[in-house]
């Protein structure tokens, strides 16, 4: 029954015109970034590496390849994708309540726990589909346009160089991590959706939470740094970057297949998983007791 319910939820998601706004937005943004880098790539890299020019001699012409462009795309848009996820997940329960279909579904022989879990699973699959779409356009598209090469990534005052043979798995891992992070956003949006009877409220609330925590993270205030940021959802969402920071030996030579701080990546993944479980548990608990009056 759960699989059948999940199929129905996926069917409903992909029959709604709103779903394709996210796919369209990602396509347009990725294409715009690729076009901009194709036309003014070197200037952009100069601007991007402005703070490092005093420390390193940067080989601008060799940096611009498909892998570098894909990392740039991820940097620029992954922080905005929660909005696109909230657009669908925030509407999963509240949208049905507003449309008057929630009462029809809840009067069917399906447990409310299963209903929430099916909606969460469907939202997660939507997240995966969105990231696959992004992977195709950002990674495959960039490789097609800019070709391949070694990947150079800057981290504050450090420079991380990865051989092109050591890059592809990092993208796979980064996309998988992003899927986990965005699933946490989907779980949060579903939680807000359970409490609401209109679509807009949960979507706006989810986006607001992401914005507020992102600002707190960027403010670097000691109070936030000590008590909030170590547990901040948005801070751990950026854990995917860890796959592009490599370990170096004593001579400063990059170690192939290494990750600079695997424990930090794992810790972020665990915290995100914890958030997913927590959000789902609250959603299920509340939804099971909720009087459906919509």
């Amino acid at each position: 029954m759960f699989v059948s319910l999940l199929r129905l939820e996926i069917y409903k998601i992909f029959r709604r015109p709103r779903t394709y706004i996210a796919f369209g937005a990602i396509t347009v943004i990725v294409l715009l970034i690729q076009l901009a880098l194709k036309v003014n790539g070197t200037d952009f890299i100069r601007l991007y590496t402005d703070t490092q020019t005093d420390i390193f001699e940067i080989p601008y012409e060799n940096i611009l390849n498909g892998y570098f462009v894909c990392v740039m795309v991820l940097h620029m848009i992954l922080i905005h994708v929660p909005l696109l996820v909230a657009l669908i997940a925030g509407d999963m329960i509240s949208g049905e309540a507003a449309a008057g279909t929630l009462r029809l579904i809840a009067a069917k022989p399906i447990s409310r726990t299963r209903l929430i879990l099916a909606k969460f699973a469907a939202s997660s699959l939507y997240v995966v589909a969105l990231l696959l779409w992004m992977a195709v356009f950002a990674l495959a598209g960039s490789i097609l346009i800019f070709g391949t090469g070694d990947l150079l990534v800057f981290k504050e005052t450090e420079m991380h160089l990865m051989k092109q043979t050591d890059v592809f798995w990092r993208f796979l891992a980064a996309f998988a991590f992003a899927a986990l992070a965005l699933t946490a956003i989907a779980a949060m949006a579903i939680l807000f959706s359970v409490f609401s009877e209109n679509s807009l409220g949960p979507i706006v609330t989810t986006v607001c939470v992401v914005i507020v925590f992102t600002i707190m993270q960027q403010l670097k205030v000691p109070l936030f740094e000590k008590w909030i940021n170590p547990w901040s959802l948005t801070a751990h969402m950026l854990g995917w970057k860890g796959f592009f920071y490599v370990e170096k030996n004593e001579e400063g030579v990059t170690l192939d297949g290494s990750v600079e701080n695997p424990w930090a990546v794992l810790q972020s993944a665990l915290i995100l998983t914890g958030y997913i479980v927590l959000f789902l548990m609250i959603s299920v608990y509340y939804f099971r007791k909720k009087d459906i009056l919509s």
Partner: peptide, 28 residues
């Protein structure tokens, strides 16, 4: 048990046939 509760809006982006199919499946 079958129920019609107040004014049903159903799934507006689907046709009658698809709506029926969804509710039949939800009923097992």
């Amino acid at each position: 048990t079958g129920a019609l509760i107040e004014r049903p809006d159903l799934y507006k982006y689907l046709n009658a046939f698809e709506n029926l199919e969804i509710f039949a499946r939800l009923s097992g």
